[in-house]
Design a protein around this nucleic acid. Sequence first.
DNA 1: CCCATATGTAAAGCACACTTTACATATGGG
DNA 2: CCCATATGTAAAGTGTGCTTTACATATGGG
Lengths: 63, 63
Amino acid sequence: MKNRLKDLRAERGWSQGDLAEKLAVSRQTVNALENGRYDPSLPLAFTIARLFALPIEAIFDPE
Amino acid sequence: MKNRLKDLRAERGWSQGDLAEKLAVSRQTVNALENGRYDPSLPLAFTIARLFALPIEAIFDPE
DNA sequence: CCCATATGTAAAGCACACTTTACATATGGG
DNA sequence: CCCATATGTAAAGTGTGCTTTACATATGGG
């Protein structure tokens, strides 16, 4: 599953640690998501979508 | 996390087994999702949304 | 009455989502 | 140069998403 996390984060000038804090997950989790090592849980996907004020479908692409 | 699976399935006159087959998961998984025992993975949420032709946010509610 | 179909649930097992701790490397500012 | 910050990754542990097999119960049609 592809995602636009790295772009969305960079647009806002946030570090992975900043994003992790806002999402209440570890920095390693953010890194793993950005680099496609695994997909977020559905609840985390909702948290991410809410943070960026976008639909889940606008951030994640099942491809 | 709440979801509208049971309603959407009933509207179409499908059994849990029918839905499981269309989603390519086990009937127990459909039953567990409908009864809120756990949330689907993000890929499965996308499959469900595609099947019902609805956005993920129209089916699942993180509450 | 039977039986087929639908639903709920349990147990054991595997894979993955996420954690903490830890280390390596790059980069830019003093 | 140094050091702080940012990023990538690894290992071990926990919980959960999903599987297969299995059993119990309800319900409606013949």
